[in-house]
Design a protein around this nucleic acid. Structure first.
Lengths: 114, 114
DNA sequence: TCAACTACTCATGAAACGTTGAAATATGAT
DNA sequence: ATCATATTTCAACGTTTCATGAGTAGTTGA
């Protein structure tokens, strides 16, 4: 992932509404969620939702598909993973203390080499 | 890490100059780098540098110490790790496909359980 | 065709961001 | 004291972002 793409993604993620959107969409997997359902679930106006969804889509973090009159949005787990990997590897040089963030649930249970 | 702190950190990281700053400071460890050296290295004006450094410091991503007339800046690896962990766990629910980003260099070389 | 529904676009204004250069502050050397 | 160095602060300007509400476009069923 190039820096410019990572920057777009980080800008997109640096907003409360959009972070909630990602959170909501990650949970729904490939099926996704219709715009109207998202609006109701997060209590966001239609235009505001559309603005934030298109910001996320432009950044490549989510995708959409039309199904009759509904538009379903879903998170692109691959791209989101790439953004995190970019922070981890290209910006932080896989710094050992930072890498530790990857094993929070198993913290302390891994041998020193990992 | 709370969402508001993570959002501040993401905003701070979503800028090319500041990402370069983090990159440069991560490499210098606890010693850090004096502002003037950073300015020369990244070819950034003093006031612009100061602005971006204070943005990063306010977000908690870097710290500073004065030494005679120099001010040394260093990255806070712990906080940077927390931000990445927040994205990974609190936003992406440790989604398996996204978690895969943590093992790019050792990909395929770990047993399935890790 | 018409009405209802779903989602998007647009214009507006307020707020935040980023760059610049000049001025101010702090520290150290002569 | 005076001067030089190092860094920060400030005001100005243009750009970008965001929330709001009104209006528009596409889809479905009567």
């Amino acid at each position: 992932m190039e820096q410019s793409k990572a920057l777009n993604a980080l800008s997109a993620l640096a907003n409360g509404t959009r972070l909630e959107l990602v959170r909501a969409l990650i949970g729904t997997g490939a099926e996704g969620l219709a715009a109207g359902d998202i609006a109701r679930r997060l209590d966001v106006s239609a235009s505001r939702l559309s603005f934030h969804l298109s910001t996320l889509e432009q950044a490549g973090l989510i995708t959409s598909r039309r199904e009759s009159r509904h538009v379903f949005y879903m998170a692109d787990a691959g791209v989101i993973g790439q953004v995190i990997a970019y922070l981890l590897n290209d910006c932080c040089c896989a710094h050992p203390e930072i890498r530790a963030c990857c094993t929070p649930e198993t913290e302390g249970s891994l041998p020193p080499g990992l």
